[in-house]
Write a protein that binds this DNA or RNA. Structure first.
Lengths: 67, 67
DNA sequence: TCAAAATGTCAAGTATATATTACATATTTT
DNA sequence: AAAATATGTAATATATACTTGACATTTTGA
């Protein structure tokens, strides 16, 4: 998977550190880091939780428009 | 998680069986069944693959509007 | 410029998504 | 009604998301 810059950017817009976002959604900072880096393939439940925290939707943060 | 009726309905609209959808996205029929039933929490990659197959987006099939 | 905070990364462990096999019931088709 | 197909479900196995703990580097702010 590619880097998730939409996520990184949405997190920055809310002025949250990886650690803070991780705490809110109940995972570790390493997990948030890995998702932003594109290292793995999170569960949709975690994606939804991240989206809600950042005021975005799944399409905003996890849908790639180009096929 | 609750039953995913949006998925069940989108699959029906394309006239695909659970088995056919599973084959296309590369999982087993039990996995598709469990997702529709709401038994577990698929990876976002699998969600995206299902959405593409059914001509829907993540928001269409995996975003619950009520908080 | 120095310390603190944030980020990147790695190794080893745990939890859970997904596979495999199998069987039962429901639905559709002939 | 019988046969085929679709769906529901369960037990055991495997792959991988995610944790824990640790250390290194980069960035931020006083």
């Amino acid at each position: 998977m590619a880097k998730n810059l939409a996520l990184k950017s949405a997190r920055a817009a809310r002025d949250l550190s990886q650690q803070q976002l991780a705490d809110i959604v109940g995972v570790t900072r390493q997990t948030v880091n890995a998702i932003e880096k594109g290292d793995y393939n999170p569960s949709v439940k975690l994606c939804i939780s991240i989206c809600r925290t950042l005021g975005k939707t799944l399409n905003d943060l996890f849908w790639e428009d180009e096929q």
